[in-house]
Design a binder for these strands. Structure first.
Length: 670
DNA sequence: ACGCCACCTATTTTT
DNA sequence: TAGGTGGCGT
């Protein structure tokens, strides 16, 4: 690891460079985050730039939070306070919150997550028979948005029947969203782009606010994000982007690594700096990575070097089956951990697809080894969390029909399908939202008076709560709201077991606690409940996981999820043809992305790296033979060593080690 | 409103 | 093979 205080010449150059846009090509483990954090500190302390004029953008909330922490440690507290360090999406949300009326949105707008947009597409295609590929359509819509292609353009350029259908759905989708006064995640970048393109004055205002923009993981930017970046960078050209084309593994979701090249064209005065010294891995590992990636075509040549010792050779292990592979890996980890006296958390097992975690998980469990699988279901997928958020959404945004429908009868209010059907028709005719429709007296003619009464009770209650929310403390009102609707009872009623109801209620309580903290943090910004909810939808509660990251557990995750992390000891399993590279990635470009994925995995390792593959596995139920990945053949023979999985650890030996470990555990407990 | 059966599909995932 | 979804029946 690089010492805390020193910077190498390239890093220093990147930090000190001012006056023209800067592209930092930062190889794996070359200290790119350090460059960004130090540059921020430098801009403030040496250049006298005010913190509020600096914005740094990352791709995940976690990365943003870590960067905030690190900058905070470099600066006196009062200086880091007004910095903006956030994701593109949060940045966009902030802009929209101030300027949404210029785009026809009303304040209190809702943010729709993936599930919400899925539901919307489902609704839009309900009558179109089941001949529409819904997930494909949603996928396509997102790609259009990421490429800044508006519905009209999509319609014009549709090439086939499917494209045409999807484009028509896209147009309706977008219309529906704006009727709901709602934005999807992609809109959080696309709409700010529209805003800045259309309004010179607003653009200048934002350019004046953001005097220096820094972007991390730049190779992951998509078309819309690139456009936003360009619009935000003003005449003073305060731009620093850091990225690595060899670690671009998100093209499949719209990332455009060619944005690196575009930068050279769009900013003639661009300065390019390469960070090539790796502080992470030993020589054998680094050279293995270097060799693999030379098989890709490159825009910028880059050669990582390390001042570290040679270390151990990279091992390639042949196994009979994924089960055998899992036993082998686990046994090796036990052995190594015992021998080196290090922690389970120093070990990571990486794989291409989530399903590969299964056999590993089973074996780890058998041996009572603590492990952590990253990428579990999000907190927000729990129905109780969605319910509460839907309440808050409706209170902030009466036009949010999906929220209305979700909660109108949850808990039960005896407002049934027939009533909602009539309500929907009425709303449709008059082109208003369901909530507005249910408040209109004219509706009485269409509904029996008992239904009318129940509906009225609900809407009156929502309106009253909404009124309270405008003045009072948002989290307190949410708490009393949960009481008023007797949500706990509803959970008791609908859950199979009381323990489950309790667990679900705990989730609700956790959400409320979060709302508390959030409201306290942002008291000065006088956000409405809508603002809080929007923020919550974006930032999520992911942070709560990192709080509990004290556990000493073996890490299991996909290669994608491993990007940006490092571990002393890394295993990559399933390094097979059709798996890595994945069978659907046969074209050159896709193959290169698969190779980068392998590269990312390899460069996560500090001290030891092992790659394994099976010679057979069951594929879609059918057993099949498999070949070692072509990438293995591309590795430098002098840095790797091939081993036969069967010879090193027999089943008996695995069990033996397992027993020893178990005895260890027992000894520790007593 | 719920549960069961049949069918379909099977990368990577953040916001 | 397994898990998820949609439709239908109680």
């Amino acid at each position: 690891m690089q010492s805390k205080t020193t910077l190498n010449p390239q890093q220093s150059y990147a930090i000190n460079h001012l006056g023209s846009p800067l592209l930092v090509l930062a190889g794996a483990g070359s200290g790119k985050t350090r460059v960004i954090t130090h540059k921020i500190a430098h801009l403030i302390q040496q250049c006298g730039l005010e913190p509020r004029h600096i914005t740094a953008v990352t791709f995940t909330n976690k990365a943003a939070r870590e960067m905030k922490d690190r900058v905070g440690r470099l600066l006196p507290k009062n200086l880091s306070r007004n910095l903006t360090i956030s994701t593109f999406h949060s940045l966009g949300l902030g802009m929209l919150r101030q300027e949404c009326h210029h785009l026809g949105y009303r304040s209190g707008f809702s943010i729709y997550d993936t599930q919400d947009t899925e539901a919307l597409v489902r609704e839009l295609t309900a009558k179109d028979a089941n001949e529409v590929d819904r997930s494909g359509c949603r996928w396509q819509i997102s790609h259009w948005k990421n490429a800044l292609i508006m519905p009209e353009a999509a319609l014009q350029h549709a090439e086939d029947e499917i494209g045409f259908t999807h484009a028509r759905i896209y147009a309706r989708y977008q219309r529906q969203l704006s009727a709901y006064n709602a934005l999807d995640f992609d809109d959080l970048v696309v709409q700010p782009v529209k805003l800045l393109e259309q309004h010179h004055d607003i653009r200048e205002r934002w350019q004046n606010k953001i005097r220096h923009l820094l972007i991390d993981e730049y190779q992951d930017t998509n078309g819309a994000q690139y456009a936003l970046m360009r619009l935000l960078v003003g005449v003073n050209q305060g731009l620093t982007v850091v990225g690595d084309d060899d670690q671009s593994v998100y093209a499949w979701r719209g990332a455009r690594p060619e944005n690196l090249a575009r930068l050279v064209e769009d900013y003639p005065s661009l300065k390019v700096i390469k960070l090539e010294q790796n502080y992470r891995s030993t020589e054998h590992i680094l050279q293995t990575a270097n060799r693999l990636i030379t098989n890709n075509s490159h825009l910028f040549e880059k050669r990582l070097w390390s001042a570290q010792e040679l270390g151990e050779r990279v091992r390639i292990v042949t196994c009979k089956s994924p089960e055998h592979e899992a036993e082998r890996v686990v046994s090796e980890i036990l052995h190594s951990q015992f021998k080196r006296r290090d922690d389970f958390k120093d070990y990571a097992i990486l794989y291409r697809g989530n399903h590969q975690a299964r056999p590993l998980e089973r074996v780890l469990m058998e041996h009572h080894i603590p492990y952590k699988i990253s990428g579990s279901t999000s907190f927000f997928e729990h129905s109780e969390v969605k319910d509460v958020l839907a309440y808050l959404r409706l209170i902030a945004n009466p036009d949010d029909d999906p929220a209305f429908l979700r909660i109108v009868n949850t808990p039960r209010r005896e407002i049934g399908a027939a009533t909602l059907e009539k309500l929907g028709q009425y709303a449709n005719q008059r082109d208003i939202g369901l909530f507005a429709a249910s408040q209109e007296l004219g509706l009485s003619q269409h509904l029996p008076s008992s239904a009318r009464l129940r509906l009225e009770r609900f809407t009156d209650w929502v309106q009253e709560t909404s009124r309270k929310a405008q003045h009072g403390d948002a989290s307190k009102i949410t708490r009393s709201m949960i009481e008023e609707i007797e949500y706990r009872d509803w959970l008791m009623e609908t859950s199979k077991k009381p323990e489950i109801a309790e667990k679900r209620m705990n989730n609700v309580v956790e959400l409320l606690d979060w709302l508390d903290r959030l409201a306290k943090d942002r008291l000065d910004q006088s956000e409405g409940i809508g603002g809080l909810v929007a923020h919550l939808c974006l930032v999520g509660l992911l942070d709560r996981n990192s709080d509990q990251q004290t556990g000493n557990e073996v890490n299991l995750m996909t290669l994608h999820a491993a990007k940006g992390l490092e571990f002393s000891h890394v295993w990559i399993v399933g390094v097979e043809e059709n798996l890595l590279p994945h069978h659907s990635s046969s074209e050159d470009e896709q193959l290169e992305e698969e190779r980068r994925l392998a590269y990312v995995g390899i460069t996560r390792a500090r001290k030891t790296l092992s790659l394994s593959f099976s010679t057979s596995r069951t594929r879609s139920g059918e057993p099949c033979e498999c070949e070692p990945s072509r990438f293995l053949g591309e590795l430098p023979t002098e840095h790797v060593i091939w081993e036969d999985g069967a010879t090193r650890a027999s089943g008996a030996e695995v069990r033996e080690r397992g027993k020893a470990h178990l005895a260890n555990l027992k000894a520790m407990l007593s």
